[in-house]
Amino acid sequence: MRKAMEICGQIHSVSPVGNVTDESEACPKHWFVALVQMNCEKTANKKLQLLNFETFLPIQIEMHQWSDRRKKVERVVIPMMIFVKLTTKELEKVRNLSFIYRFLTAPGEHKPAIIPDEQIEQFKFMLGNADSEITMEPLTIRKGDKVRVRRGLLRGLVGYASVDSDGNSKIMIVIDCLGCASVSISAKDLEHVK
């Protein structure tokens, strides 16, 4: 127990009775996205697994037809990316591996982005059960979507996405009985609100 807390850099006095945190509470693991070189995803994934890290490399098996034969081929769904479940201490170790280019960050952020467990589970379910090709598409913000500003002076402002007559992105807030107040903003600075 004490060893687990030392690994995380958190040394607490451990009571012999009750209220003892286990390793998963002291060192929570999160999913991160490691970026690797093109066509090296499978090799990098195996290396991470040999180092005892939990990984998820989205692969889909497809049947390819050539003029003289048919063959099952493994296709990496998201090129150059591997999901890795790590503690913050492990993140620093993996970041320094020679075959890891860097970790994916959210736009405007400097810390590696955390991918929620439920999203990984849903993705795994989709990969295991889909009978057609899975593709990745950018999450686009459309007119009328509820959004939040994620950086800049308006950070935290919640409103609705809009587009002006020139095609520029705007955020609008509703003011009852008056209408909407709006301001131009880059779509890169907006995120969807659930």
Rank of each mutant, 00 (worst) to 15 (best):
P79Q: 09
K124I: 13
E90G: 08
T43L: 11
P107I: 03
L127F: 15
E118H: 11
A113M: 10
Q65R: 07
T105Q: 10
Q119A: 08
M81I: 02
S67H: 14
E137F: 05
R95H: 11
R102C: 10
G144F: 13
Q60P: 07
M126W: 07
T88L: 12
A44S: 14
F83V: 04
K72P: 15
P138I: 05
K143Q: 13
L57P: 00
P58N: 07
H110F: 08
D131R: 15
D131K: 15
D68W: 08
I115K: 04
L104R: 01
K111Y: 11
T55I: 12
E121K: 15
W66Y: 13
K85E: 05
K85W: 00
Y101V: 06
M136Q: 07
F53R: 03
F53P: 02
V94H: 08
D117L: 09
K46S: 11
E74Y: 06
L91I: 10
V76W: 05
K72E: 13
R69N: 09
Q49T: 15
P79S: 10
I115Q: 06
L104M: 09
K146D: 08
S67P: 07
F99E: 03
E137L: 06
I82C: 04
F123L: 11
Q60T: 07
F83D: 00
K143Y: 13
L51I: 04
L57H: 00
E121F: 14
V84Y: 05
L57W: 02
R148D: 00
I78E: 02
D117T: 12
T43Q: 09
R151Q: 06
A130T: 15
E90N: 09
R142V: 13
T43E: 05
R150S: 06
R151M: 05
P112I: 02
P107A: 01
I100L: 07
H64W: 06
I114L: 02
Q60F: 03
V147Q: 08
S132Y: 09
T135I: 11
F99L: 06
K93T: 14
R70K: 13
N45I: 04
I100A: 04
V73R: 11
E121A: 15
H64C: 04
L139Y: 05
I134R: 07
E90M: 07
V149G: 02
I78P: 00
S132M: 09
K71A: 13
Y101F: 03
T88R: 12
P138S: 10
A130G: 14
F103N: 01
M80T: 14
R148N: 00
L51G: 03
L139D: 06
M81D: 01
V73S: 09
V94M: 09
T135A: 04
M136V: 15
M80Y: 03
V94L: 08
T87V: 12
A130C: 15
K85D: 01
Q122M: 11
Q49H: 15
Q49P: 09
V73C: 09
Q60M: 04
